[in-house]
Amino acid sequence: MTTTEQLLEQALGHVAAATQAMLELAENDVTGQLIFTTRQCLDVQTLLEDAGAVIDIDLVDQGGTSTPHELLQLAAAALDAIPADERPVLLAPARAELQSTIAASSPV
């Protein structure tokens, strides 16, 4: 069974991987959107750490060929898997910011 700590770790790992992927992709981004979204990703990471998440770099490396948008969705899924009664109080702002970032990163 996956614990709350592990799910938080997973979420943070996926967001960190998405951030790195966005920074790589931003080189060819003429719309400028990716840099705004990257900056949001950093906020999500900070908020997740505030909620008690600790990074697991093994999870970051598992990003593989996923797009940043997919990675952010995986992070959201990990957070959703945390039972409602076990969610840290500080997780709410992180989830909200993550959802906003997912919306901003969605492919047209």
Binding site: Q20, E24, E49
Partner: peptide, 29 residues
């Protein structure tokens, strides 16, 4: 962009960014 990308998740120092910096950065964005 390259400077920002030179900070991979497996390197870190200190804790979270200062609240003032985060707020001002958000304001800029």
């Amino acid at each position: 962009r390259k400077a920002a990308a030179s900070w991979p998740p497996h390197i870190r120092s200190g804790g979270r960014a200062s609240e003032d910096q985060v707020t001002a950065s958000m304001g800029l964005r």
